[in-house]
C-alpha cells in the first residue's frame, strides 16, 4: 500500500509540476464554460419567449434545459482530454528505461497500475470540482435540483475513470506516447458511439451493444438516475482494462 502511494504521489507530482495537469484542466474548464454560456443563453431566450405562454413555461426545467446537455457536452470533452493524461503513464517509463527501475523494485504490478490510475483520476476529479462553479452560479438565481447535479457529476467521474483505465491499458502496450494516445482516443470514441449501429442490427445483438455502450450508461446519470446497473458497468469496464494492463506488463516481462 505504501508503495502504491509512493507511485501515486510521484505521478501526481509529475502531472502538477509539469504543465500537463494545468493544460488539461484549462482546456476542460474553458470548453465547459463555453458550453455552459451557450446553453444558458439559449435557455434564457426560451424563457423569455415562454412568458407569453404560462402553460408551456411550466415545462421549462433547468435540469433538462441546461445541466443535462452540459453534462453530455462535458462527457465529450472528457473523451478528448483523458487520453492526454494517460498516454505517457506507462509508455514513458519504458521509453526512458525507468521501467527497469520500477519493476526491479519490490513492488507488484498492481501497485504501479493503481498508483498511476488514481493519480490520473485525481486530476479528473479536480477538474470536475472546478466546474461546480456553473451549478453554483445557477443556484444563485434559480432553484437547482442538487440531486440531479450530484448524479451528473458522479456519472462524469465514472465515465472519465473508464476512459482512464482504457488509456492506461493502451499506454502499457507501446513505448510510443502518440500511438498510446491515438489508440485510447479512437477506442474511447468507438465505445461512445457504438450504439449508433443499433437500428441496423438484429434485436439480440442490439441489446448487447446497448449494454456495452458507454453513452447508454451515462444517459441515466445525467438525467439524475443512479442505477446500480450503470455503476456495475463502469466498475467492470475499468477493472477489465486495468486487468488487461496487468497482463500486458506480465507478458512484456516474458517476451523480454
Amino acid at each position: 500500500m505504501s508503495r502504491m502511494i509512493a507511485i501515486y504521489l510521484r505521478e501526481l507530482g509529475y502531472l502538477f509540476n509539469s504543465i500537463i495537469a494545468y493544460i488539461v484542466m484549462m482546456i476542460f474548464t474553458l470548453l465547459a464554460g463555453y458550453f455552459f454560456y451557450n446553453l444558458l443563453a439559449f435557455f434564457n431566450l426560451a424563457s423569455i419567449q415562454m412568458m407569453q405562454n404560462p402553460l408551456a413555461a411550466g415545462e421549462l426545467s433547468l435540469t433538462e434545459g441546461v445541466l443535462q446537455p452540459l453534462f453530455g457536452n462535458m462527457s465529450i470533452v472528457l473523451l478528448l482530454t483523458m487520453p492526454m493524461l494517460t498516454m505517457r503513464l506507462l509508455s514513458e517509463e519504458r521509453k526512458l528505461g525507468t521501467a527497469e527501475l520500477l519493476f526491479t523494485c519490490p513492488i507488484s504490478d498492481w501497485d504501479a497500475i493503481l498508483g498511476k490510475y488514481f493519480a490520473a483520476a485525481t486530476v479528473l476529479a479536480t477538474m470536475l470540482v472546478l466546474t461546480f462553479v456553473f451549478p453554483w452560479l445557477l443556484s444563485r438565481y434559480a432553484a437547482v435540483e442538487w440531486g440531479a447535479v450530484t448524479s451528473g457529476y458522479l456519472g462524469l467521474l465514472f465515465l472519465g475513470m473508464a476512459y482512464l483505465a482504457m488509456g492506461l491499458f493502451f499506454s502499457s502496450i507501446t513505448e510510443n506516447q502518440i500511438v498510446a494516445g491515438i489508440l485510447s482516443f479512437g477506442f474511447s470514441l468507438l465505445f461512445l458511439i457504438i450504439g449508433w449501429i443499433n437500428p441496423f442490427v438484429s434485436e439480440g445483438l442490439s441489446r448487447v451493444i446497448a449494454q456495452v455502450s458507454i453513452l447508454e450508461h451515462f444517459g441515466s446519470f445525467s438525467a439524475g438516475i443512479i442505477d446500480t446497473n450503470d455503476i456495475v458497468y463502469y466498475f467492470c469496464f475499468s477493472l477489465f482494462f486495468l486487468f488487461l494492463c496487468s497482463r500486458v506488463l506480465e507478458s512484456n516481462r516474458w517476451r523480454g
Binding site: R10, G13, Y14, N17, S18, L96, G97, T98, A99, E100, L101, L102
Partner: peptide, 8 residues
C-alpha cells in the same frame, strides 16, 4: 541506461 526521472 541509468533510470532517472529528469524532472525530480
Amino acid at each position: 541506461n541509468v533510470p532517472l526521472y529528469h524532472d525530480l
